Amino acid sequence: MILHGYWRSGTAYRTRIALNLKGLAYEQRGVDLRQGEQRSAAYLALNPQGLVPALEVDDLVLTQSPAILEWLEETRPEPPLLPKGTADRARVRAMAALVGCDIHPLNNLRALKALRQDFAADQAATDAWAGRWIASGFAALETLVSHHGHGWAWGETPTLADCYLIPQIYSARRFHVALDAYPRLLAIEAAAEAHPAFIAAHPDRQPDAD
């Protein structure tokens, strides 16, 4: 497996977590988004959308982290990142989508660059923009974890929801979002800080990190 990603990308981060939780070996190839490497002809041949991550497996190239994580769950089912019951699986997917669909797209690099370039937003304004969507999403996740979590977002072991949550907490800290109102999410962060799969996936530990 070859994972094309960027060390600080939340989508690449969540993919690394899932690969590590599954115990899968993979080579990393950095795509520096700041230098525009995602728009190179070589990378666009892999991923015409010009986004990270992209996962190469033999003759297969997979893009979009939700699709990659679902493919991993289907093809490498142990250890599982989704619970057994169909209703529970839907709830975990909903928690993941809360981050992946409703929080992350509004504070990713493309969105923030548009705020700066098209609307002259300064750093304080972009932090406030990101914080607005992170706070509303985290408030909902805090409630969901209170109903379903027992050490992790769902139950007693990591799931897809945690693969999405931990990178978003990392991003929240970059944008100086106050997190005291989310003690259950902070407890999950503490659990991740002691878990080998999450430790190895952390942006600071990646070969292309600053």
Results as ranks from 00 to 15, higher is better:
8 R>V: 03
175 F>A: 04
68 I>C: 10
181 A>R: 13
127 D>T: 00
91 R>T: 14
111 A>D: 12
206 Q>V: 03
175 F>Y: 15
202 H>C: 01
85 G>C: 06
35 Q>I: 10
50 G>S: 00
128 A>D: 11
108 N>Q: 12
207 P>I: 12
189 E>H: 08
161 A>C: 06
25 A>E: 14
90 A>T: 08
59 D>N: 07
120 A>K: 14
66 P>Y: 07
189 E>L: 13
70 E>A: 15
162 D>G: 05
194 A>T: 13
161 A>G: 10
52 V>S: 01
180 D>E: 15
33 L>E: 01
29 R>P: 01
166 I>N: 00
206 Q>Y: 06
121 A>P: 05
198 F>W: 02
8 R>K: 09
43 Y>N: 06
32 D>Q: 07
13 Y>G: 02
88 D>K: 03
45 A>S: 07
7 W>V: 03
91 R>Y: 12
22 K>D: 06
29 R>F: 00
79 P>W: 13
47 N>G: 09
121 A>I: 11
106 L>V: 08
151 G>R: 02
188 I>E: 02
51 L>N: 07
177 V>I: 04
178 A>W: 06
145 V>H: 00
51 L>V: 11
79 P>Q: 06
2 I>L: 13
159 T>S: 14
46 L>S: 03
140 A>R: 11
106 L>M: 14
174 R>W: 01
77 P>R: 05
210 D>R: 01
169 I>G: 02
195 H>P: 01
117 Q>P: 05
174 R>C: 04
90 A>I: 08
58 D>I: 03
162 D>V: 04
116 R>A: 14
12 A>R: 03
52 V>P: 00
197 A>V: 07
114 A>M: 14
113 K>R: 15
183 P>H: 06
77 P>A: 10
202 H>W: 08
186 L>M: 10
138 F>K: 00
176 H>E: 12
71 W>R: 02
210 D>K: 05
108 N>L: 08
